[in-house]
Write a protein that binds this DNA or RNA. Structure first.
Lengths: 218, 218
DNA sequence: TTTATAGTTTAGGTTAACCTAAACTATAAA
DNA sequence: TTTATAGTTTAGGTTAACCTAAACTATAAA
């Protein structure tokens, strides 16, 4: 049974691997806000335990075993988020922090009960896929709104879940999961987007915000 | 914010105080399964922090502050137990262990949401009173079935929650909360009780089991 | 080919909570 | 009044996860 801290390392390595080509100890250090000396020590320990491989200067890579553990934690995190929203009526910007704690103490029985009560969901409230019990995860084909072409209509399928401020802002302007968005214009100056949200009037959003909204072509 | 371990000390001291006249470091050591040297150290620390007073050889006593913290944990434990049974459909013998973990990481917001979903319950699934948000707790007037007089009828209002084996056994013979029990006979030999459970046939239960079932006169 | 920089590791230290072994001391029973 | 016992504390040690400061080294740009 890995410790809470070990679980956090594995989870973050997994997530970083989907975004960055190299997951170095120093990148991890930055993400986890732990000194690189400490990360280095921990990586050494995890490599000895067989959950990952570290090639210095090339980055770490989870083993089958490590990936399985990481997906377990991510599954618990996302199931719990879904539960917070659907059963306890939390807002979507309040749940990430809560789930950070609960993901580590959920027993298998608990996981199964929640899965059942929610009717075996496949997405969490931000549109992230929930890994299944057998460890499979549906890759998300969505791309950031910032990459959408001018004059196209897209549908919001996922939103970055790490900033509750962002989530609050999106709710306030009416950007929620499954909304249709028409991309009217992209300003050359700073890549701001002028968009029209289905059933509402036009607004302008910054490039940084657009990078955190994931969409699919309709 | 007290650590998980500190919370466990405070909770157990509170519970022991309701049962024993003296809560000594060695009694705590036994309950918590921690060496008395370690308990002694921790008690010293807690006394310095002002959550309890220790008079060597006389036992510890929680301060107002300490009692408040203890009741908070007990409230979270029992609310969570109730939630596990009512919302996630756990059996009453599976919940104590789960709640032991969750009681420490429940935020105020979480506590309030659960309280609301359950419609502000006053009892947990074993019949133990749930402390209210303001820190009041309804004292339980029940007494153990082992003290019930011969030829009286009583009602089960609470059951000791610490052994899941006991709870399973009680379910299997039909002893659940609010059941009426007629005490037919008490065997001199070992204080076994011959009882008739309302709507069922007579059974005999040991004194030890009877001590863990709490009843009220009808 | 050199060298700055990014990435990594080592050395030495801290903290909270635990441990065993041994010494101490108040209380209650003889 | 003595003394066994229950209760307590001290001394010295461990472990996991963290830290800073300093040294080391592969890679990529000059």
């Amino acid at each position: 049974m890995p410790s809470e801290q070990v679980e956090n390392y594995l989870k973050n390595i997994y997530k970083l691997q989907t975004v960055e080509e190299k997951v170095t100890t120093s990148l991890l250090s930055e993400k986890l806000e732990i000194s690189s000396a400490s990360v280095s020590e921990m990586i050494k320990k995890l490599a000895e335990e067989g959950t990952l491989k570290h090639t210095p200067y090339k980055g770490v890579e989870l083993t089958k075993e490590g990936e399985k553990l990481a997906l377990k934690i991510i599954r618990r995190h996302r199931l719990w988020e879904m539960f917070l929203v659907q059963v306890l009526h939390f807002q979507w910007d309040e749940i990430d922090e809560e789930a950070e704690k609960f993901e580590h103490i959920m027993s298998q029985k608990m996981e199964d009960k929640i899965d059942k009560v929610l009717h075996y969901p496949t997405m969490d409230p931000h549109g992230d896929p929930i890994p299944q019990r057998n460890g499979t995860i549906k890759p998300n084909s969505a791309y950031p709104l910032s990459d959408a072409k001018k004059s196209t209509t897209v549908r919001v399928v996922r939103v970055s879940d790490t900033s509750s401020e962002l989530l609050q802002y999106l709710s306030s302007v009416g950007i929620v999961l499954h909304k249709k968005i028409f991309v009217k214009e992209c300003l050359r100056f700073d890549n701001s987007l002028i968009i029209k949200i289905h059933g509402q009037k036009e607004i302008t959003i910054s490039n940084k915000i657009a990078m955190n909204i994931f969409v699919e072509k309709i």
